[in-house]
């Protein structure tokens, strides 16, 4: 696992820009997508090494997307790091039950994001 393709599914433009900046600086290729309904197609199209998934997305929630990813054999073991601004413990529990690889709450520290991305993507 040496690919450095990350797919960021997030709808806040400023946050997209921040994460893209952090990861690009570290040598990652960052694809972004900001709509929940078409997210799975984007995943198939991009075939990322790692997905950073927001929970509250227009059209479809991050949980639903995660469930579909885990149901699909192709993406069953794809590392998924979830980001949420609703930092309640039950959100975390739900995400872990659905098979999230890592769960982070907003606001996050840039270094932490970067480190988690590296770890999860096998670097």
């Amino acid at each position: 696992m040496t690919g450095k393709q990350v797919l960021l599914i997030e709808d806040e433009p400023n946050i997209i820009e921040a994460i893209r900046f952090i990861l690009s600086r570290d040598g990652w290729a960052v694809a972004t997508h900001s709509d929940g309904t078409t997210a799975l197609e984007k995943v198939r199209a991009v075939a990322p090494n790692l997905i950073i998934l927001d929970v509250m997305l227009p059209g479809r929630s991050g949980y639903d997307i995660l469930r579909d990813l885990r149901d699909d054999a192709a993406t069953k073991s794809l590392p998924v790091m979830m980001l949420t601004a609703r930092g309640q413990s039950k959100d975390r529990e739900l995400a872990e039950r659905l098979g999230v690889t890592h769960f982070m709450t907003k606001p996050f520290s840039n270094a932490e994001v970067l480190e988690n991305v590296r770890t999860l993507a096998g670097w």
Binding site: E12, N14, I19, A85, G87, T105, K106, P107, F108, N110
Partner: peptide
């Protein structure tokens, strides 16, 4: 509220 507050704060912190 958490979401609405954390979202701008996320950007602010990150940038």
């Amino acid at each position: 509220i958490s979401h609405e507050l954390r979202t701008p704060m996320t950007s602010i912190r990150s940038f």
